[in-house]
Design a protein around this nucleic acid. Structure first.
Lengths: 202, 202
DNA sequence: GTCTATACCGTGATAGAC
DNA sequence: GTCTATCACGGTATAGAC
C-alpha cells in the first residue's frame, strides 16, 4: 500500500508492527464483534500479553480506526480509477459495482468491520460519515445513468442505490477467500453485476 | 399476535411486562449493539432501575432470546402461508421474497437484532442455526424454479440465494416505518421484487 | 414492582522489571 | 519488546427494604 522503500529491507520475522497486529485484531473483531472483544481476547489471539499490545498501539480504538480507514481508502480509490469518470453512466456504474465487490473481497476483514460499525464512538461516527459519502457518489452515478435513459423508471433511485449496496455489502457475510469452491472472487463479482442489472429471471 | 382473549381485558397502563420491556430493550440493542448495551443503558431507557429489570427477566440474554425468537417465528411463518406450497416455483419464490421483505419491515427491530447476532453466546448460535435453516428452505425454492427453467442459468444457485437475501436483509440498515416519505413498505417490497427478478437495467 | 446498596468479576489501561 | 502485577472502573447480577 505505502511505499516499501529501501529502509527496513526485509520484513522482520517475529515481532509485531502496528500493521501486523492490526491483521490479527481485525480477525478477532469480526468474529466476536468490536464491543464483544476484550484486550484479553486480543492478547490471546496475538500470543502476547495485554500490556505488550499497548506498546504498539494506544488502545483498542486505534486498532478500529486503522482498520476502517484502510477499508474506506480502498473504496474511495475506486472512484479515482481510470474509466470511473468517462463513458456512458450506466457502464461506469456497472464498473463501480464490480470494483466495489472486488475491493470488498480483497480487503474483506477491513470492509467487514467497517460495515458493522454502529456509531458508539467518535471513530465509528466518522467512519459512518465517510461511508455515506461514498454511497452518495454512487447515487449520483445512478442519477446520471437514469438521466441517460438506461435505468428502469419504476424504482426510486435512492431506494435502488440502497438495495444495490445491500446486495454487494452482504458478500462479507459469507465470502471466504480460501474456500475457492463454487465461489471464486471473479465469479462472485460477475454474479453481483448480472443480478443487479439483469435480475434473477431468465 | 397471540389471542387477545377475554382474560386481562385491557392492557395495563404503566408497569412493565416482559413484552413491553422487550420492546424498549430491542431498540437500545439495535442502537448500541447487544454487547455495547449495558444493563445501565437499558434501565435508563426504560426509566426503571437496573434491579427492577431483573424482576421481569432473568437477565440480558433472555431479552435477546425473546427478541430473536420473535423474528424467527415471523420468518418461518411465511413458509406456512397459503400459496407458499403450490403453483409455479418462480411465483412462490417471488411471493416468499415479497413476504420476507414485508415481515422484515413489520417486525423491524426484532429482525434487525437477529441479523446482527454474531455467535458469541449459546442463544446467538441457536438463532444463527435457525436462520440458516430458513435460508436453506429458500434455496430449495430457487432450485425448484431453476428446474422448471424459469431462472437464469449463468449464476450459481447458492450464490444467488445469498445475494437475494443480502438485498432483502439490507432493508434493516435504513428502513424506518415512521418516515413514510419516498419509502412506504409497499414501495420497498415492490422495488425488491423488481430488482431481484428483473434487475436495474431498462 | 420498584428501589438502594452491594457483591463480585472482567474490563481497558499503566508501572516498572527484565 | 515483552512480561507480571496492579489500578480504577463499570459490568451483570443479587439481597432485602419499602
Amino acid at each position: 500500500m505505502a511505499q516499501s522503500g529501501n529502509e527496513t529491507p526485509v520484513p522482520r520475522r517475529d515481532t509485531y508492527t502496528p500493521e501486523s497486529l492490526l491483521a490479527v485484531a481485525v480477525e478477532v473483531f469480526n468474529e466476536r464483534g468490536y464491543d464483544g472483544t476484550s484486550m484479553e481476547h486480543l492478547s490471546r489471539a496475538a500470543g502476547i500479553s495485554k500490556s505488550s499490545i499497548y506498546h504498539h498501539v494506544r488502545g483498542k480504538e486505534e486498532l478500529l480506526h486503522r482498520a476502517v480507514s484502510r477499508a474506506l481508502d480502498g473504496l474511495f480509490g475506486i472512484l479515482e480509477e481510470p474509466g470511473a469518470s468517462s463513458g456512458r453512466a450506466v457502464e461506469r456504474l456497472e464498473q463501480v459495482t464490480r470494483r466495489t465487490a472486488e475491493v470488498l473481497m480483497a480487503e474483506l476483514p477491513y470492509v467487514t468491520l467497517l460495515l458493522r460499525v454502529r456509531g458508539n464512538t467518535e471513530t465509528e461516527r466518522l467512519a459512518m460519515e465517510r461511508r455515506r459519502e461514498f454511497d452518495q457518489r454512487v447515487t449520483d452515478l445512478l442519477e446520471a445513468a437514469a438521466a441517460e435513459g438506461d435505468l428502469r423508471v419504476d424504482v426510486d433511485l435512492r431506494l435502488a442505490t440502497r438495495l444495490l449496496f445491500g446486495m454487494i455489502n452482504s458478500i462479507v457475510e459469507w465470502y471466504r477467500p480460501e474456500a475457492g469452491g463454487a465461489a471464486g472472487g471473479e465469479q462472485v463479482a460477475d454474479a453481483v453485476v448480472r443480478l443487479a442489472f439483469d435480475g434473477l429471471r431468465r
